Amino acid sequence: MFALPLNSQNLPYPDPIHPIVVHFVIAMVCFSFICDLVGYFSRNPRLFEVGFWNIFVAAIAIFVAIIFGQFEAGLAQVYPAVQPTLNFHTVMGWSLGAIIAAVTAWRFVIRNRNPLKVPPTYLGIATFLICLVFLQVYLGSKLFWVYGLHVKPVVEAMKQGASP
């Protein structure tokens, strides 16, 4: 069996890729929401186009983030205290992937029917989506900053047999 050597972060490549891609997704979902909200109140349809393309690209990129998240979670030094947060983060990640894909499909239908308007119902659902994204950000931050997944000192301590 072929195995890649792991570095000091317990990864086969220099830095975790999941956070890089996921921050891109977070920014695009938030920017899409802001564009749609400002476009709605300012009646500027050009912002709706920007909002649509941001959510469209985010809908693709989130699955790249999920794939790297799953891979990197599998390589993480997981100890019992981490497991519930990691499990919830994983379920939320897959759920957000499905929700963002569904919202994007709905946004595509809205755009095709009338590119000059976005209904208030969509903005309500998008607000809920932003809340879910913020919850996911909290969970991911907790995995890194509190539990130290893929953080060099924690990885080294776990390799030496330390238990948190």
Results as ranks from 00 to 15, higher is better:
residue 1 M to Q: 01
residue 1 M to E: 01
residue 2 F to W: 04
residue 3 A to L: 08
residue 4 L to D: 09
residue 5 P to N: 06
residue 6 L to K: 07
residue 8 S to I: 09
residue 9 Q to M: 13
residue 10 N to F: 07
residue 14 P to H: 04
residue 14 P to C: 03
residue 15 D to S: 07
residue 16 P to Q: 01
residue 17 I to A: 14
residue 19 P to I: 10
residue 24 F to E: 04
residue 24 F to R: 00
residue 24 F to H: 00
residue 25 V to M: 06
residue 26 I to G: 02
residue 28 M to E: 11
residue 28 M to D: 05
residue 28 M to W: 09
residue 29 V to Y: 06
residue 33 F to K: 06
residue 33 F to Q: 07
residue 36 D to I: 15
residue 37 L to A: 05
residue 38 V to N: 00
residue 38 V to I: 15
residue 40 Y to E: 05
residue 41 F to Y: 13
residue 42 S to H: 07
residue 47 L to N: 01
residue 48 F to P: 09
residue 49 E to N: 02
residue 49 E to V: 12
residue 53 W to V: 05
residue 55 I to W: 06
residue 57 V to Y: 04
residue 59 A to W: 02
residue 60 I to A: 05
residue 60 I to T: 04
residue 61 A to Q: 02
residue 62 I to T: 03
residue 62 I to R: 04
residue 67 I to F: 06
residue 69 G to T: 00
residue 70 Q to H: 01
residue 71 F to R: 05
residue 72 E to N: 04
residue 74 G to E: 01
residue 74 G to T: 02
residue 74 G to K: 05
residue 74 G to M: 07
residue 77 Q to L: 10
residue 78 V to C: 02
residue 80 P to N: 01
residue 81 A to L: 13
residue 82 V to H: 09
residue 83 Q to V: 02
residue 87 N to M: 06
residue 87 N to A: 10
residue 87 N to S: 09
residue 89 H to I: 02
residue 91 V to M: 09
residue 91 V to I: 14
residue 91 V to W: 15
residue 92 M to Y: 10
residue 94 W to L: 14
residue 95 S to Y: 03
residue 95 S to R: 00
residue 95 S to W: 05
residue 95 S to Q: 00
residue 96 L to V: 12
residue 96 L to H: 02
residue 97 G to W: 00
residue 97 G to Y: 00
residue 98 A to F: 15
residue 98 A to T: 04
residue 100 I to P: 00
residue 103 V to G: 00
residue 104 T to N: 08
residue 104 T to W: 15
residue 104 T to C: 15
residue 106 W to K: 09
residue 106 W to P: 07
residue 106 W to T: 11
residue 109 V to K: 08
residue 110 I to G: 01
residue 110 I to W: 06
residue 111 R to Q: 14
residue 112 N to V: 05
residue 112 N to T: 05
residue 115 P to G: 01
residue 115 P to L: 08
residue 118 V to S: 14
residue 119 P to R: 12
residue 119 P to S: 12
residue 119 P to M: 08
residue 120 P to G: 14
residue 120 P to T: 14
residue 120 P to Y: 12
residue 123 L to N: 11
residue 126 A to Q: 10
residue 126 A to K: 12
residue 127 T to P: 02
residue 129 L to Y: 07
residue 130 I to T: 12
residue 131 C to Q: 01
residue 132 L to A: 12
residue 132 L to S: 03
residue 133 V to L: 08
residue 136 Q to M: 12
residue 138 Y to F: 12
residue 139 L to F: 07
residue 139 L to W: 14
residue 140 G to A: 07
residue 140 G to F: 03
residue 141 S to R: 12
residue 142 K to C: 05
residue 142 K to Y: 07
residue 143 L to Q: 15
residue 145 W to Q: 10
residue 146 V to L: 08
residue 147 Y to I: 12
residue 149 L to M: 04
residue 152 K to L: 10
residue 153 P to T: 04
residue 156 E to V: 15
residue 157 A to F: 02
residue 158 M to V: 05
residue 159 K to W: 14
residue 159 K to G: 01
residue 160 Q to N: 13
residue 160 Q to H: 13
residue 160 Q to P: 02
residue 161 G to F: 01
residue 162 A to H: 06
residue 164 P to D: 00
